[in-house]
Design a protein around this nucleic acid. Sequence first.
DNA 1: TTTAAATCTAAGCGTTTGCTTAGTTATCTT
DNA 2: AAGATAACTAAGCAAACGCTTAGATTTAAA
Lengths: 187, 187
Amino acid sequence: MARKKQYNEEEVIKKAMSLFWRNGYEATTVRMLEKEMGINQFSIYASFKNKQGVFLESVKYYKKQLNSIKDKLKNSNNGVVGIKEYFYNFITFSTEGQIRKGCLVTNTVNEVKEEEEPEVMVELKKFANEIRDLFVSNLKQDDKKSNSLVQQQADYLMNAILGLSIASKMFTKEQLDNIIEVTFTNL
Amino acid sequence: MARKKQYNEEEVIKKAMSLFWRNGYEATTVRMLEKEMGINQFSIYASFKNKQGVFLESVKYYKKQLNSIKDKLKNSNNGVVGIKEYFYNFITFSTEGQIRKGCLVTNTVNEVKEEEEPEVMVELKKFANEIRDLFVSNLKQDDKKSNSLVQQQADYLMNAILGLSIASKMFTKEQLDNIIEVTFTNL
DNA sequence: TTTAAATCTAAGCGTTTGCTTAGTTATCTT
DNA sequence: AAGATAACTAAGCAAACGCTTAGATTTAAA
């Protein structure tokens, strides 16, 4: 056998995710990834094939983080995720110490072109659908709501959370809290 | 004196705006602008100084278009802009024939970094504030609303319209219409 | 008709991009 | 201890980026 990797792949992806998140996909260069991840280009390409590979792993890690938040909310609420609580956690997670970076996925949906990075777009759309499904299954708890009303409100909530991703870059925490409150008085 | 310009500056900016809108700021190269605008690099730099200059003019043109829609709504409604109607026109304008391109300004806010393009960000923030002011002045028509409620609802509407910019890239026209309906049941 | 000035074309500048390759170093098996 | 193999370093590749420059062409005033 031979030499061992001097780095842990999940640890360097965590750093890469942070950089992509702050910086956007295209604007993040492989040279910047080198510095942030603490390994050089050869190692990056050896572990993740190419820049897109690093990004796809970053999205996986992002998903994992957001899902562990979801699971915590679920466990503290009889197996049901409270959507309002999810919203609050979403914007807290989206800002995570440093403000004005929005949601990694929303940022990238807005930036990347389907024709140029189809593999990336597939992952991002999956992600969006998972969140929408979460809204749907929560709204269905209320038997009084018709199926079409559930779909309509799920879209409304998706719109609100997409908005929050951008709004989190320009508004104060208080304003964001108010927005969430008003958003839910409708349901 | 000397030779005359073979092109009309507003006409070529119109074309440039369309390209930036579809494509994003960074992803639009000067070579692409050459083809779209139908003039070559020398002329672009002579008329607009640099790529940023072309973009700033494009935003001006975009603003002008959106404001003329606003003025029409104003004139057909006793000098007051109905916000709901503004929303409908906003998403129609945002899709404008070809779907999935969102709002030029929202797209760019999401993409451009304040440190790298401060002049661009100044313009974009001005634009966002103008729209928010429109919401505020409309909401103030209702004397029963307190000042703080007006501010809160204005933020809520900003969030919804930011969301719509992204949502217009992923949702159907029907879904977008539904989202707008639910958004306004609160106000 | 001449002349001066602005507009055009097209080539090319230096820099940065994602990615590769040649050559060295470390570590596991035998 | 020796040899094999994978991980490392660092240099460099072609292509694309924003922008500039040299030189030809057009136009309007003198």
